[in-house]
């Protein structure tokens, strides 16, 4: 329990900064809503336009003149920010002991390695959950302030729920990388690389419907934004498989960290 609180305290400052940035992102993004909702002209020409061209002209399949459509557009950036936080946190929380040369100090304590991992992952989970809650509250408040039509709070909750699962995936991925790479200093860059790669893949598959198979590689595409924006829920099968992926990565983290040769 001491270790858990120690980690919470160590991450307090960075969590505050991330939360503040998240709030600014949501507030700044919603400030743009008026610009979008004003220029809503949809002609029948657009209906005949090929999928790829729509994506290219930035129209996409979302109707950004509605509140849930606009929030879905903004959500891409919110999710990217939250995923970056989770990936860096997950890879840093185990690796920092070796980086800061405190691994020796920690390992001489009478606790098993698996309880070290448990305490650290629990602290990281709490941090991720706090960031998600901050985003949820600021989104609901800001959207309410701008929304003139019916309430979209239910969709926002679903969006943020899907974001939480994506955060969990990147958190466990980061932790897994820091446990399995021989030089744990590389786990941060590796996790960030995977994050950017997934983001790029998500953007490419937005552009064409011929490469949908690549979506399996990008957690950003596990949950269909269009589907949530239209109010059709998350898809229980995909949610369960994403959680299973997280569980597998977490289990591997325990396994690899338990047998790890620590660089002292």
């Amino acid at each position: 329990m001491n270790l858990f609180w120690r980690e919470m305290k160590a991450n307090r400052k960075s969590l505050t900064i991330w939360s503040a940035c998240m709030f600014l992102l949501v507030a700044g993004g919603m400030g743009k809503y008026t610009a979008y909702s004003a220029g809503g002209t949809s002609s029948e020409v657009f209906e005949h336009m090929p999928f790829s061209l729509k994506a290219l002209l930035g129209i996409g399949t979302l109707d950004v003149t509605t509140m849930s459509g606009f929030f879905a557009l903004l959500f891409t950036y919110i999710e990217l920010t939250a995923a970056a936080h989770a990936a860096l946190l997950g890879s840093g929380i185990l690796a920092k002991e070796e980086r800061d040369k405190t691994a020796e100090f920690l390992m001489t304590k009478p606790i098993s390695r698996s309880s070290v991992v448990t305490a650290k992952l629990a602290a990281a989970l709490a941090n991720v959950a706090v960031l998600n809650l901050v985003t949820l509250i600021s989104s609901v408040v800001m959207v309410n302030a701008y929304n003139k039509g019916e309430s979209v709070a239910a969709e926002i909750v679903l969006f943020l729920l899907s974001m939480f699962i994506v955060q969990l995936i990147f958190l466990s991925l980061g932790a897994f990388l820091s446990a399995c790479l021989r030089n744990s200093k590389n786990s941060g860059p590796a996790a960030a690389g995977i994050l950017l790669g997934s983001f790029a893949i998500a953007k490419i598959t937005d552009l064409t419907d011929r490469l949908s198979i690549l979506n399996a590689l990008s957690p950003f595409k596990y949950f269909s934004i269009d589907r949530i924006a239209e109010g059709n829920g998350l898809g229980i099968g995909i949610a369960l498989s994403a959680l299973a992926l997280t569980a597998v990565l977490a289990a591997l983290t325990y396994r690899f960290y338990g047998r790890r040769e620590l660089n002292l």
Binding site: S52, L53, L56, I204, L207, T208, L211
Partner: peptide, 12 residues
């Protein structure tokens, strides 16, 4: 992805 896109554009 571009060649596919270019033919889509021509068709459109």
């Amino acid at each position: 992805v571009y060649p596919g896109m270019a033919s889509d554009a021509a068709g459109f």
